[in-house]
């Protein structure tokens, strides 16, 4: 069976700093995988390498068995690699309708249409509303994104990524900065993602990680410390040491 996502000896150096060090990842289709590690472990860097924002210093990346390491960001998105950002990367002046419609239009190959209004073609708006509804965003979908509460913006991050219909979805700390009382909303949204989508979750909150993930990869100083099931990881003394050492 081909893996949904695989990296072979992935490496990234920033000058003298090795941010990603010989990372081998193997994700099966539909996997619920968590990527954990202390601050500065290289989690975001890994996502940037996978999605093409950064060029790797060495190594290969395969999506559904196809080498994508040489492709541009958009080409990878078209091939089904979606992501969210640790720090909101949204369009402040666009509404959630417009934001999600962008993703839907591009995915359906109509993003270059200049001769007709957005949402006048086929089922684009149905799809937009479906996605927004899934994340409870329809109520304020007509307001500029910058006016949405922070928690809603975090949900929009996931919504717009899902609207690209990814086969593999990389979530970079989706609940980052969300107040304790609202985190469950994010977790529920993440748990309710379609089963056929392979999901990689980066998260510091261990409860959330253990609830969500089937397998966990622990990254320390750019390298994989260990990989295993939730039970294996939670019992691993090295992992505890890393996290206890963290504080």
């Amino acid at each position: 069976m081909t893996l949904a996502l695989e990296t072979i000896g992935l490496k990234k150096t920033f000058g003298g700093l090795t941010a990603t060090n010989d990372v081998h990842l193997r994700l099966e289709k539909g996997a619920r995988h968590a990527l954990i590690g202390p601050n500065g472990a290289g989690k975001t860097t890994l996502i940037n390498l996978l999605t093409g924002v950064l060029a790797p210093s060495a190594g290969q990346i395969r999506l559904d068995g196809v080498e994508i390491g040489g492709m541009g960001v958009e080409a990878r998105v078209r091939r089904g690699l979606g992501r969210t950002f640790q720090i909101n990367q949204l369009f402040p002046d666009l509404t959630p309708i417009e934001t999600v419609a962008l993703a839907v239009s591009e995915r359906s190959g109509r993003g270059g249409d200049w001769w007709r209004r957005v949402g006048t073609r086929g089922a684009v708006l149905d799809e937009v509303v479906d996605v927004l509804e899934r994340f409870g965003l329809t109520e304020r979908m007509r307001e500029p994104t910058r006016t949405l509460p922070y928690g809603k913006q975090r949900l929009l991050e996931i919504a717009v990524a899902l609207a690209t219909k990814p086969r593999v979805l990389l979530l970079d700390e989706p609940a980052a900065g969300v107040p304790e009382g609202e985190r469950h909303e994010i977790l529920e949204a993440v748990e309710a993602l379609p089963k056929d989508v392979t999901v990689v979750l980066i998260e510091h909150d261990m409860d959330m990680v253990f609830r969500f993930a089937e397998r966990i990869t622990v990254l320390v100083a750019g390298a994989v410390l260990t990989e295993g099931t939730v039970a294996e990881i939670s019992d691993d003394p090295r992992v505890r040491a890393v996290y206890l050492g963290e504080g």
């Binding site: 999605t51 924002v53 541009g72 960001v73 958009e74 998105v77 078209r78 979606g82 992501r83 950002f85 990367q89 949204l90 369009f91 402040p92 002046d93 666009l94 934001t99 962008l102 993703a103 591009e106 995915r107 993003g111 717009v160 990524a161 690209t164």
Partner: peptide
């Protein structure tokens, strides 16, 4: 507004 996200949305 945001070139990084524009790419991530699939906009060429």
């Amino acid at each position: 507004d945001n070139r990084l996200r524009a790419r991530a949305v699939g906009i060429p």
